[in-house]
Design a protein around this nucleic acid. Structure first.
Lengths: 197, 197, 197, 197
DNA sequence: TGTTAAACGAGACGGTACGTCTAGTCTTGCG
DNA sequence: CGCAAGACTAGACGTACCGTCTCGTTTAACA
């Protein structure tokens, strides 16, 4: 679809994996998740849009969910780095602002991945791993503060982390409120209050 | 009928909706969601398990998601009442404990509903409405405290509410931590701290 | 449908069968068979069009096919009388002309009945009985000639009769040629030749 | 070979149609039509009996009727060849005997096809085409005689042909008389009389 | 320079579920 | 009891999608 006009068709790469095809697949996955109403993202559609055979998809990914997840990660500004400014609230604020921003325009992708994960156990495993990874990143910020001498309870930290990502997912799913920079700022502030209480 | 002069809303004639069938359908929906691997909850399966024709399901619900959602609500010990003890933290604690308890053994049902909602727009509308209703109940607790004279910011309240339900859904989805009574207690405590800060 | 504007609704007749309802049902059956694409003649449609409950249909007829068949017979100019002019060819000609004429604008009805008969054994029994009746009428013409002294073989007569009605149904079904008055005339002529050979 | 010629058409890629599946489907269609009460020939039943997915049927045929028709043709001992013995009556006799024989044990199949054709327009189109083909074959026999110098009217020929096939279908449908070899012989004789009259 | 084997496109296949449609039965309350 | 309204069971219909399975082609790497 995208290729019809300009490109002279992807080259075969013979025995080696065709990186262009991989990219085209991930692009198509994201595009379809974004453009259509979420439900309409079938593997056939991805394959067709990417100008790729369905088999090529299933050669490299075990399921649709896995494709979507990799598409998410590949694209993911979602993945905010762990800052270390020496100030707990500042670190939290930066992390959350980055995360919220990255997530904002990936909403359909994230929800698509979640949907698939709720259907397919394997996909859920992958997504859960990703979520764990993100929690670890946020925990790391608290750990840094603890290493600087602050006395912060570990149980509380776990709660705060889940509250933060919970807020994120909750609003992504239900769309009841936005995930602005201001929200992130406020969230960082109250998180610090909780942690130090 | 056509002859009668003043029509005060047509009398119901014809066979009435079979309430037993309705209950059987909702029961089966819940049972299947609970017992099997989530994916196996097909409309055919529900119909068969309920000893009902598929048509009877589609006569009363627009889609599978709608059935699951109603099953959820129907059963919902999920739906905790809004307590009013005169103490903010106590109210929050009670509400959250009840909510967590109700949710605990409904996990497969809730995730099934969520899955369907992510596929089916109508189902999502319904689920979102339900979620809004629950948020309102929690907000009500804060409003009660405000009426007792406490000065609590509304924006913060909204954030705290979404954090609480966010935590709930996040842990339901990813299963990374449980939703104990202790968690609810702790959550209530930190929520109060946030609100009063 | 027909009734909405003018009629003031059929009266209930209490314990006795409502003849108006019977007529309305047969009318609707024929109308629907004629107007729509044959396939759309459901019992619900007939009931609705006749302003009648489905149960009323099934109270008096065993199946849809039976309704259609009775509708056919009721309406049936199809049912040509057995003429007796004293001349074999003239009798045949008259009978066939009448039959063809009656059949011409009942094509959708006849095909509808046939369709139903091919699905429903009971309906087929009824239709076969009707067909036998019609064959008997045509045989009667030959019998009359025989009584006038003509020597006509019975086996041949049976063949000629089936050829005539066969032609009729064949052309009704496949629509490959029309059933004009001229066709009837010609058919009568060749039939006589066959019979006297 | 196919390769030697200049190929303008696109090369076939992809998995090729499974001929065994096609055969199995047609076999099952015929078997079910024969064995069960006509009505029980559902697409699901055919698919199951053939060990084939329903989608595979719908991939290749537009409707159930189309499958049944092809099953009929595929099997068709129905399709008698056009003989050319140099004698009109002999040719007719041979053709009709063959046709009757072929038709005899295909009765359920033929009626099944007819039933479907009366429901489904596409199927009717196919069946009508088949019928036209058969009429042409019979007409051919008359044409041969005309070429040998016999003066046979064309209009009469058309009538005779429709009478013959009409007889065939009429008796198939109503089962009022059999389609013996003797019937065919007699039919050929009277047909010749008609044609030469 | 061939030969081999992985990667690829196309696309058929089995399976499972969806939501729709009918036939025929059953139930309720009015007349 | 006849009737209108209309819910109910049973089961077929045709569609959509998943993940698997050929085919025949392309090309990197090896012989």
């Amino acid at each position: 679809m995208r290729d019809t006009v300009v490109m002279t068709a992807r080259q075969h790469t013979g025995r080696r994996r065709n990186e262009a095809a991989r990219q085209a697949i991930l692009d198509s996955a994201v595009n379809l998740l974004r453009s259509y109403d979420a439900a309409a993202v079938s593997v056939d559609a991805i394959a067709q849009d990417a100008g790729v055979s369905k088999q090529t998809i299933y050669r490299w990914w075990p399921s649709k969910g896995a494709v979507l997840l990799e598409a998410l990660l590949d694209r993911a500004r979602v993945i905010a780095p762990t800052p270390d400014t020496g100030d707990l609230e500042a670190d939290l604020r930066l992390f959350l602002i980055n995360t919220f921003e990255g997530v904002a325009d990936s909403r359909p992708v994230l929800l698509g991945v979640l949907r698939e994960a709720l259907v397919d156990t394997d996909a859920m495993t992958l997504l859960a791993k990703f979520a764990a990874h993100r929690r670890a990143a946020l925990m790391q910020i608290v750990a840094q503060a603890r290493q600087r001498g602050e006395s912060l309870e570990k149980t509380t930290a776990a709660l705060v982390v889940d509250q933060a990502f919970g807020l994120l997912w909750y609003r992504l799913i239900f769309g009841n409120a936005t995930l602005h920079k201001r929200t992130a700022t406020k969230l960082a502030r109250v998180a610090v209050i909780q942690l130090r209480a």
